[in-house]
């Protein structure tokens, strides 16, 4: 469980850690837009350099990025197989029995892989440098304009905060139940398919029951302390945008505009 890096905050106190979460979220969106612009090799090279710069500015080691990437390796492999089998663009490179591999398929897969890696890197940078609580505050603020549609961004932010808050608790709970059932002879590694399904049921049912129980208790506790989702609340933490934040926003915006323009003129 400790190897689970995707979406985890690391208190490293680097340049990007100190930036305003709203700015960081916006910059991530700008970067993602740029990633999806079709600008060829050169464009991805520059985005790659920007991503590495972001890693440096958040004091992240490549090992951590690799760890975050690991769950995606399966998906990349899957994509590669599908693409190679289906896409028939470009030059036929070589033939394997009834199968012909085209250069277009390899190129397409390479692009998707690069895009995925860039996306994962930049989203990891965001979650690693931003405390979950700041992240939800940022999302709440960015969703504020939607209030005119009778949509309460605070509710969404609260749901997100609670969901993030309970991830470690649920992992702990899962581990506990796994051990309790292992003591009753449940073996997740060995056994037939039927036994394995039973093993998973014996984990999931208690986990669901415990989660619902927890949710109910939490709702009661919140109500007991007078929580009302539609009331205006003041904040203990307030976000401030400083000079470096404006600079970061400007850079992010500039990158996106340049990439959109680049993909059009290309």
């Amino acid at each position: 469980m400790n190897s689970f890096m995707l979406g985890r905050y690391l208190p490293l106190d680097a340049f990007l850690h100190k930036r305003d979460p709203r700015i960081k979220i916006l910059c991530m969106i700008f970067f993602l837009v740029a990633v999806f612009m079709d600008t060829g090799y050169l464009g991805y090279l520059f985005l790659g350099i920007l991503a590495i710069l972001a890693l440096v500015l958040s004091k992240l080691s490549p090992a951590i990025v690799f760890k975050a990437m690991r769950p995606m390796i399966m998906m990349l492999g899957f994509l590669l197989v599908i693409n190679v089998l289906i896409l028939q663009t470009g030059e036929p490179l070589f033939t394997l029995g009834p199968l012909t591999i085209y250069s277009g398929a390899l190129l397409q897969t390479f692009y998707i892989a690069v895009r995925l890696i860039l996306m994962i890197t930049i989203t990891t940078v965001l979650t690693v440098t931003t405390k979950p609580i700041d992240l939800t505050l940022g999302i709440e603020d960015l969703l504020a304009p939607f209030a005119i549609l009778h949509f309460n961004p605070h509710t969404i932010a609260m749901i997100l905060t609670l969901a993030l808050r309970f991830i470690p608790t649920l992992l702990e709970e899962t581990e506990r139940i796994r051990k309790a059932q292992a003591s009753r002879g449940v073996d997740l590694e060995e056994g037939s398919l039927k036994e394995k399904i039973m093993a998973i049921v014996s984990l999931i049912v208690p986990l669901f029951v415990a989660s619902f129980q927890r949710a109910e208790d939490l709702a009661d506790a919140m109500e007991a302390r007078g929580y009302q989702p539609n009331r205006k609340r003041t904040r203990y933490r307030t976000l401030k945008i400083g000079f470096y934040d404006w600079l970061l926003l400007f850079v992010g915006l500039a990158v996106m505009v340049i990439y959109i323009w680049w993909s059009i003129v290309r």
Binding site: R176, I177, V201, P206
Partner: peptide
């Protein structure tokens, strides 16, 4: 070695009490 965890009631999951108690022996 039968191990009973703290708050073992969280491990109950079968449809009936009897099935749940019989779950362990069946596994073995």
């Amino acid at each position: 070695v039968g191990l009973v965890f703290q708050f073992p009631e969280y491990q109950l999951f079968e449809e009936t009490v009897l099935d749940d108690v019989a779950f362990g022996p069946k596994n073995f």
